[in-house]
Amino acid sequence: MADKIHVQSNINGYDVDFLCESRQSLLEVLRDVLNLTGSKEGCNDGNCGACTVTMDGRIVESCCILGVEAEGKEIITIEGVASADSLHPVQQAFLEEAALQCGICTPGFIVSAKNLLEREPDADEERIRFWLAGNLCRCTGYDKIVRAVLKAGEVMRKG
C-alpha cells in the first residue's frame, strides 16, 4: 500500500489530523477516513456538485481536490452547517419548501446556497440559478430549490 501523508486542517470548526494517500481525493478522505459521509459522490469529476464543501470560504468540489491539499485549510461540510440547537435558515427553508426529494443532491445544494447567501443575501432568481448551475438535481426540477433559497435569503436579511 502507498505511503500515507500526515495532514492537518480545520474541519467544521475543529482541528483535525488525518493520514491519507496522495491519490485520495478530499471527498474520499471526508467520507472514508473521517466518516463525514454527508458530502456525496455523484460523478467524481466535478460535474454534479454533490460533493461541494467550502474551503477557506469558497465553494469547491471535494472530488476535484486531493486530501493533501487540505493542509492548513478551513473546510466546512454539510455536517458543519447547522448549530447544535437549530438548523441554518437554508436548511429550514429546504424543509419547508419541500426542496428535496431523494435528497442526494441536498448537501451540495445547501452548502452552495448558504455560501451564496452569505455573500449576497438578496440574490434574485437569476443569480441563484447561475450560482447553483454547478449542482445537479434530477428530482425536483429546481423550482422548489430556487424558492427555498429565495426564502432563506429573506430570513437571513431579516437577521
Partner: peptide, 14 residues
C-alpha cells in the same frame, strides 16, 4: 427531512 438536510441520512455508499 432533518436527517437529509444535515447530511446525517445514510445512503448506500455511506
Amino acid at each position: 427531512g432533518v436527517d437529509k438536510v444535515t447530511g446525517r441520512a445514510k445512503y448506500g455508499a455511506d
